[in-house]
Design a protein around this nucleic acid. Structure first.
Lengths: 126, 126
DNA sequence: CCTCTCACTTACCAGAAGGTAAGTACGCAA
DNA sequence: TTGCGTACTTACCTTCTGGTAAGTGAGAGG
């Protein structure tokens, strides 16, 4: 019931953690911000091919409420908004890395197809 | 498109891993099975207060398809079915533990309420 | 005889999540 | 003047998820 109480109550820590990452693009947003440090709305969106603007803002707002990211608005025209990870967000990302390794291993082993982003920047993903 | 291709394709490893744990009770099922080694359907269900039978079977079937758990049916009357983790499931559980730690820390810090299971066995949760 | 247990299955329903498409207010480039 | 880019918001629609309630079929216990 504190400021961070977007949902819950929780049964255990995993429950609480999963709740916070379980949006279709949240893992990717976390990873993008960890890679680049600071990103603007449109940059971030270009990094996640397929997100709609609506869901993008929804996710970002929730992650801000959950204390995972900072949102800095510059009073300029045209508008400029920059997103970056909080300490908590960075820690979450670190906690996610073994999970990423597990997933990558399973993709490799089972030869599950990865999406082909012809236009997206090609870089290693978590 | 192999036998394990319940969903996908995936953008990254985290994506693949989250897909496999993202059912309301899957984290708990994983943890219960890791704790007890082998559990029958009704035992498992009693360990997760609130699951419906329908969702319980759904989750178990999906986790079996995903290669996380074994399902052993004894040809007896009354029916007996035992569930246990596969090697892959055990590894996933290990990969989830930093996430659990992160979540527990956040619960502690923010004093988010945990559900009170008056009837459930009281033991530490991940 | 009635009820409970086991491990489900089925039909139905409510709410959440995510997608599309359009609108907004402003400046700058062509 | 038309369109583009910025960072959104809003309305609407579809799909997914999980919940309830009931049925199944045989055996064991009161």
């Amino acid at each position: 019931m504190t400021r961070a109480g977007r949902t819950g109550p929780y049964i255990c820590g995993i429950d609480a953690a999963l709740d916070v990452v379980s949006g279709k693009w949240k893992g990717l947003i976390l990873w993008e911000l960890d890679e680049h440090g600071t990103r603007r709305f449109a940059e971030l969106r270009r990094g996640l091919p397929g997100v709609s603007e609506k869901v993008m803002t929804q996710h970002l707002r929730e992650m801000e409420q959950d204390g995972l990211i900072h949102r800095h608005v510059y009073a300029e025209v045209p508008p400029r908004v920059e997103y970056s990870l909080t300490e908590d967000g960075r820690k979450l990302n670190q906690a996610l890395s073994p999970l990423g390794a597990w997933g990558r291993e399973r993709i490799r082993r089972d030869e599950i197809a990865l999406v082909d982003h012809a236009d997206a920047a090609r870089m290693p993903r978590p």
